[in-house]
């Protein structure tokens, strides 16, 4: 690891101030992706701004919306009675990110800001139509995610919370990579009124994406059978040693059905 200067921010405003003046800074949330990357000298920020003390943690229900602070850990989301009652699929998703130790430190804000194409949260944000709150603005999930490892965030912009509208029903199923346990394919389905959203993570060569053909079919009838015969073109999918694009395309169909069946 290369040396860096460590800053601990007491407020979001304080963090922004450090971001603006520090040389090549990076925000430190849970660090569960960033630290291994730095250890392998694949990332070399000259300064880290730790958000742990910036008051960004917490879960609350505001009407029909669940608002989760950016520094809320995966374990906190998974075990939250509020999330479990309102969006059980989201609690389940959080409860299967990484492993128990990673869930104790990894945060929702860190995950969405990193936008790893194999991460779980982006699928939930997209399918549930979540809104990402930053210190500057509010962004719909679809505006926020901007392809592999990139987001709409400015350099001095910090994710402060994520607001999830409570769906009628939602389900998430992940097909994990046998080694890393990241998603090879993860499908989040959410039904709100007559509208259905299907978001796929792990598979797209451009990161998380919505599956319009599936949304249309499920909008007519929210049943796994509705997905029969809906193929996913392999052209825009990832291929690696664990799963070719063709296999991923196939898995999307299978996993989507299972997500619909699991929806609650």
């Amino acid at each position: 690891m290369y040396p860096f200067k460590y800053h601990k921010a007491a407020t979001v405003r304080g963090a922004v101030a450090i971001l603006k003046k520090a040389e090549e800074p990076k925000l430190l949330a849970g660090g569960q992706t960033l630290i291994p990357t730095m250890k392998q000298r694949l990332a070399s920020p000259k300064a880290l701004v730790d958000l742990a003390g910036a008051g960004l943690s917490g879960i609350e229900q505001k009407g029909r919306t669940i608002v989760i602070g950016a520094m809320t850990t995966h374990a906190e989301v998974a075990n939250s009675a509020v999330v479990q009652a309102a969006i059980p699929a989201l609690a389940k998703l959080a409860g299967h990110i990484g492993d128990p130790q990673v869930r104790h430190r990894g945060t929702i804000g860190g995950s969405v800001a990193n936008n790893d194409p194999a991460a779980d949260y982006p699928a939930a944000l997209m399918a549930l139509g979540a809104t990402v709150h930053t210190n500057k603005r509010k962004l719909a999930a679809e505006e926020f995610f901007a392809g592999l490892f990139s987001t709409a965030l400015d350099e001095d912009e910090i994710v402060t919370k994520v607001a999830f509208p409570v769906p009628g029903k939602a389900g998430y199923v992940k097909f994990p990579n046998p080694a890393s346990r990241y998603a090879i394919v993860g499908v989040f389905v959410a039904k709100k009124g007559r509208s259905v959203r299907v978001a796929v993570t792990g598979a797209g060569s451009d990161g998380v994406f919505r599956h319009e053909a599936m949304e249309e079919a499920l909008g007519k009838r929210f049943n796994p059978k509705s997905l029969d015969g809906i193929a996913t073109p392999a052209g825009n999918l990832n291929g690696d040693i664990h799963a070719s694009a063709e296999y991923r395309a196939h898995l999307i169909g299978v996993i989507a059905k299972r997500a619909v069946a699991a929806a609650a």
């Binding site: 460590y6 430190l28 660090g31 569960q32 630290i35 291994p36 250890k39 374990a75 990484g98 492993d99 128990p100 130790q101 990673v102 104790h104 430190r105 080694a179 890393s180």
Partner: peptide, 22 residues
């Protein structure tokens, strides 16, 4: 890469990977 767990300790009562914590 934070996979093996040989480094697990408790921080404030919770298991964490001490190789992935400053």
């Amino acid at each position: 890469t934070s996979q093996c767990g040989a480094c697990v300790v408790h921080v404030d009562g919770k298991a964490v990977k001490s190789c992935t914590t400053f």
